[in-house]
Amino acid sequence: MTTTTLPRLAVTAGEPAGVGPELVARLAASDLPADIIAITDRDLLRRAAAICGIELTISDDDGSRLTARVAGHVRVRHVPLGERETPGRPSPANAGHVLDMLAVAADGCLGGEFDAVVTGPVQKSSINDAGVHFSGHTEFFAERADSDVVMMLASPELRVTLATTHLPLSAVPAAITPTLLERTLRIVGRSLTSLYGLAHPRIAVLGLNPHAGEDGHMGREEIDTIIPLLERLRGEGMDLLGPLPADTAFVTAMRPRYDAVLAMYHDQALPVLKSEAFDSTVNVTLGLPFIRTSVDHGTALDLAGTGRANPASLFAAARLAIVFANHRAAV
Rank of each mutant, 00 (worst) to 15 (best):
D146S: 15
R65H: 12
S126F: 00
K274H: 08
H73A: 13
S91G: 10
A25N: 02
I187W: 09
G111Y: 04
M101K: 08
R144D: 05
S155R: 02
P228E: 03
L273K: 06
M101I: 10
L244I: 09
T285N: 07
T86H: 03
P271M: 03
T3Y: 15
V188D: 03
P210A: 14
V261R: 13
T12W: 08
D100Y: 09
E182P: 03
G20K: 02
T40Y: 00
S135Q: 04
R77N: 07
V261F: 09
H200L: 15
T225Y: 03
R159S: 12
T164Y: 14
L169W: 02
S280H: 11
A321S: 04
P210N: 13
A329V: 08
R255Y: 14
L320D: 09
P271A: 04
D35N: 08
T281Q: 08
T40M: 12
D35W: 04
G197Q: 07
G235Y: 04
N128I: 07
A50G: 01
G112A: 08
A49D: 10
S135K: 07
Y196H: 14
P16Q: 11
T306A: 00
V74M: 01
L288Q: 03
P245C: 05
R183T: 06
I223Y: 06
H211P: 02
A175D: 01
A93R: 14
L153H: 02
A174T: 12
L314A: 13
I37K: 01
M254C: 15
S313L: 03
T285E: 09
N283K: 02
H297C: 05
T293Q: 04
D267I: 06
D224P: 11
I127L: 03
M152P: 06
T40S: 12
V11N: 12
I203M: 09
D35S: 10
T3P: 15
L230Q: 00
P168L: 10
V295R: 07
G96E: 15
G189W: 08
